[in-house]
């Protein structure tokens, strides 16, 4: 898997270059004053990415990590998609529908089949969380 490691190095170096050439000049706009240079630390990060990326290309060693299968990546995308979609709807639909929906998606995706555990996760967990925050901790949820 040495190719993967080298590709990571290429990615790192490209990101470093992007930081130094575009992101820092565009988004770090403070002027250099006698108090210091606002872009000092971002530039350190940029150079580190660039140099370390280069070293990674040259000295990559095989790693133990195995890349996940297509199926796993698909599942990751689904989980994240569910969270992002749910969280964007949170202010509109309110906390309980949001959390019940999210729990339902997750339970479905981790192949839980036993009805009592499904019920506990979809109904019990959201209500428990709601009680915890809203009633015990007194923090209003949407």
């Amino acid at each position: 898997m040495i190719l993967k490691e080298r590709l990571l190095g290429v990615g790192g170096a490209l990101f470093g270059a992007l930081l130094l050439l575009y992101l820092i000049p565009t988004f770090v706009t403070g002027e250099v004053t006698e108090s210091g240079d606002p872009s000092f630390f971002p530039r350190i990060a940029g150079w580190l990415f660039l140099v370390l990326g280069g070293l990674q290309i040259l000295f990559a060693t095989p790693s133990e990590e195995t890349l996940p299968s297509k199926q796993e990546m698909g599942r990751l995308v689904l989980f994240v998609g569910a969270m992002v979609l749910g969280t964007s709807l949170l202010p509109i639909v309110g906390f309980l529908p949001y959390s019940m929906g999210l729990m339902a998606v997750i339970v479905l995706m981790v192949f839980e089949k036993r009805p009592h555990w499904i019920a506990l996760t979809i109904v019990g967990v959201p209500i428990g969380t709601w009680l915890l925050f809203e009633q015990i901790l007194q923090r209003p949820l949407p």
């Binding site: 949170l90 202010p91 007194q138 923090r139 209003p140 949407p142």
Partner: peptide, 12 residues
């Protein structure tokens, strides 16, 4: 939504 650390005085 506009919210962060929130607190009410305890109802008691």
């Amino acid at each position: 939504m506009f919210s962060s650390i929130m607190k009410k005085a305890s109802p008691v």
